[in-house]
Amino acid sequence: MCREHEPGMTLIVKTITRLTVGLILLYGIYIFSHGHISPGGGFAGGVIVALSFVHLMLAYGKDVAFKRVPQAAISLFEGMGAMIFLAIALLGFAGGYFFLNFIAKGEPFRLFSAGIIPFCNIAISLKVGAGLFSIFIALVILKFESEQKK
C-alpha cells in the first residue's frame, strides 16, 4: 500500500487486467440476460458488472476508469434502472394491476420467453451494478483526498 500515489499497479497486473476485464464484463452480461433460464439473475449479474469496473479501477487508477465510465454516466444508469423497473410495473395497469405480466409468455427454455422477467432482470442489474460501483467510488475518493492533504 506504499505506492498509492502512483497511478495504478505494476506492469504485470496491468497486462492481465487488460486481457481479463472484457471477459468479466461479458460474463456479467451473460448471467443477467439468461437469468430466467439458468441460475443467476439480476443481482448476481449486476454485482459482476460492478466488479469488472472495480477491477479496472484497482489496476489502472481512477483516471483511466473515469475516462471509460464518467461519473455522470453512473448516476444516469442508476436512475435509469429504477425508472425502467417502475415503468414496467406501472405498465401492468394497462391490463389490470401492478406488476402484471402483460407480454406473451412465449416458449419455455428460449431466451425470449417469460414475458416481463428478462426486462426486469436488466433493470435490476443496471441499478445494482451502478449503485455498488458508486459506493466503491465514494469510499476510494476519500482516501485520495486525505493522501493529498498530507
Binding site: G35, H36, S38, P39, G40, S113, A114, G115, I117
Partner: peptide
C-alpha cells in the same frame, strides 16, 4: 410465468 428458473419467477 413461463420462466424455467423458479427463483427468478
Amino acid at each position: 410465468t413461463g420462466a424455467t428458473n423458479l427463483v427468478a419467477a
